[in-house]
Amino acid sequence: MSLLSVRNLQVLFATENGEVAAVDDITFDLAEGEVLGIVGESGSGKSVTALSIMGLLPRPPARIGRGSVMFEGENLLTYGERAMRRIRGPGIGMIFQEPMTSLNPVFTIGDQIMETVRVHEGVGKAAQRDRAIQMLARVGIALPERRLDDYPHQLSGGMRQRVMIAMALICRPKLLIADEPTTALDVTIQQQILELLLDLRDEFRMAIMIITHNMGVVAEMADRVIVMYAGKIVEQAPIGALFRQPSHPYTRGLLDSIPSLADDRERLKTIPGTLPNPSALPPGCRFEPRCAWRVAACIASVPPLVAVEPEHHSACIRHGELAAR
């Protein structure tokens, strides 16, 4: 049984132009200890997917249209706020893109880590403190006893992300969702954080869902990759297969635009055009307006995900020709 199993998830947002689907009919699985990469441009629905798993979407304007999110055999979408709170932390931890703004500026990092333990485990102050010190040491923070009383603004960006990781992992979650964890960091720090995450995965035997627009990060981290475009999965494959035989024009575009880790600013420069407006989506394939491979049939209907090879799915009707190239 997989740890996390998302089926036909659809997330709707109320806008001035009526409801639009930010995430549409998403299905995927994540096994224990596995690292799943979700790639796509900002606006592709990857963060919405993550937040809907956590039950953190602002409602309204967001609403779950249909689908299920099974975590350890239970459908989280049926959970109330109180039950969901017991999942956040001990079940699923989450870290975010901006370690600058994701930590509360007016509380010490010790306080912010310890309160998580207190809320979920109800242990005494001394025990909380020990746990926090251990965890800070584990994520590579020197002199953790002293750092405990520091405020976020006294730490560097990399240190803050380490603190965020410590905070997310302090209750030993089975799954860590990392939403663009390195985007805001310097390149050398990015590398350290990614390595730290992989080490922690092995040590804590947790699964990681890493959300990024950076194919380089995926290559480094992921066992398996989901490529999202305009709220839909366009390709899904083990990491090797994806790089060996990308079977969707969008994935190819992403791979072509891989910069070195040193420079992710010019991402996607080889794909012309922008994401379609979610309230006025193309009738057929959503990538069709930007696609160099488009044919008349692409407009006719939404192409389904089909198996290219075992474990490897693509939503392009010309995936065979793509593979031949």
Binding site: R85, G89, T101
Partner: peptide, 17 residues
Amino acid sequence: RQDYVRTARAKGLPNYL
């Protein structure tokens, strides 16, 4: 709307906190 409020929710803190 700030990120740290989202972080606090992501940690599973109750609403009053």
